[in-house]
Nucleic acid binder design. Structure first.
Ligand SMILES: [Mn+2]
Ligand SMILES: [Mn+2]
Ligand SMILES: [Mn+2]
Ligand SMILES: [Mn+2]
Lengths: 217, 217
DNA sequence: ATAAAAATTTAGATAAGTCTAAATTTTTAG
DNA sequence: CTAAAAATTTAGACTTATCTAAATTTTTAT
């Protein structure tokens, strides 16, 4: 079978592919996996041997069908465990990522299926990310960034692009919770910060930095 | 920190110590860990360097206080996860050991504490084994083997000494469930098999091989 | 008490995953 | 179009956990 390390590379290749087009570079992988480019090259040769990636020297990589299937399986487990940790164990959404990073590598289809049922087949994880189906489909979402919304529009907070503890705790302090409805006030032309008004009528000031990491519909 | 492998050795040393007195031998460890004696020696030197075991060449090993503390922590996690898998996810008690072998290595005190609370602080795992406390105490149990019970005595099934899938499924087929009360009938003098009668009045034939792996009170 | 047997350790090797430094290829700028 | 810069790969090394075969120590039996 494949190791934790190989699984992490597959997941990382998938994640980088999502936010750019074209093949994934060695350096991009080295940065995200916090290793050196030389180490990445070693691993890429190994994944290519196993036919989990398409790899041409110096040209970057992309997942094969089988590689993508595996990546989606790992992401599915990661997100299901995050739902478990938040909904059942009462963890904050800012505290679950590292634990899910370990749980995602427990490879048992029956465990995943039973966990999914236990959680009542959730479609989104605590950060609003869609959970791949058992058959390996990543559900499509049509969210905009809050930073792309016009003044006066009413939207609902659906997800986050940034997953750091600091960012998520900042949202908690602002009472910006997933699912909450907000209406956009005026956008400050100087720093593009914006005032939004929540359902309760409470005004919340949102910097551009925060707004472009919030997904709404 | 220490690796999965080191944790497994600590747990194994603890387990072997329980069922014998005196120090644990290299060969005993090699058998249980399914490795070679030479590999065990390598690991013992490493664990001794970390002061997790007392080790004198050729003389076998025993856990230090710190080593035992760690072993109990791992056993605690293993057994809590087994309770989760059976009680919450609906796994059979014969199917949870291998999954718990992986889950037990996720090292997060907060995770363990929250899981414990979520399960309502169980004292025994699905096999009747006591769950070490948060402070590292292994609860004492005073169970006898069914094979040591006299004819006519009424006892309650409290645990198993053998954890193999085959054995546990055999008990399922016989409707021998943990917690069930049985009264001993006559013991066959030839093969020491015994007929027991359950609460429902149903007679169940139990071989000596089975009886000496059942714990009762 | 001593020789044979059993247990254990040491020596030397391998595979996975990582690193640094050097070599090579591709990209970018002038 | 070429030279410098950037990206990537190769070479050689280290660590962890494992193995086999050989050497050593302890135990067991005459
Ligand atoms: Mn996560
Ligand atoms: Mn998430
Ligand atoms: Mn178990
Ligand atoms: Mn158990």
């Amino acid at each position: 079978m494949h190791s934790f390390t190989e699984e992490n590379y597959l997941k990382t290749i998938y994640a980088i592919s999502l936010r750019q087009d074209g093949d994934v570079s060695t350096n991009a992988l080295a940065e995200v996996t916090a290793t050196k480019a030389a180490s990445v090259t070693d691993m890429l040769r190994k994944l290519a041997d196993k036919e989990l990636i398409h790899y041409k020297k110096y040209q970057g990589v992309r997942l094969t069908e089988e590689g993508e299937r595996l990546a989606l399986q790992i992401i599915r487990r990661h997100r299901l465990w995050e739902v478990f940790l938040v909904d059942k164990l009462g963890f904050g959404w800012d505290a679950v990522h590292d634990i899910a990073e370990e749980l995602e590598h427990i490879r048992s289809d029956e465990l995943t299926a039973r966990l999914d049922a236990f959680l009542h087949y959730p479609q989104f994880d605590p950060h609003g990310d869609p959970i791949p189906t058992q058959t390996g489909q990543m559900p499509e979402t049509e969210y905009r960034k809050l930073s792309d919304v016009n003044e006066g529009e009413a939207v609902r907070l659906m997800g986050v692009l940034e997953h750091s503890t600091a960012f998520l705790q900042h949202l908690d302090r602002c009472q910006l919770t997933l699912g909450c409805a907000v209406t956009l006030g005026e956008i400050n032309p100087f720093d593009r910060s914006v005032r939004v008004v929540s359902e309760t009528g409470q005004p919340i000031f949102v910097s551009h930095e925060v707004a472009r990491n919030l997904l709404v519909e």
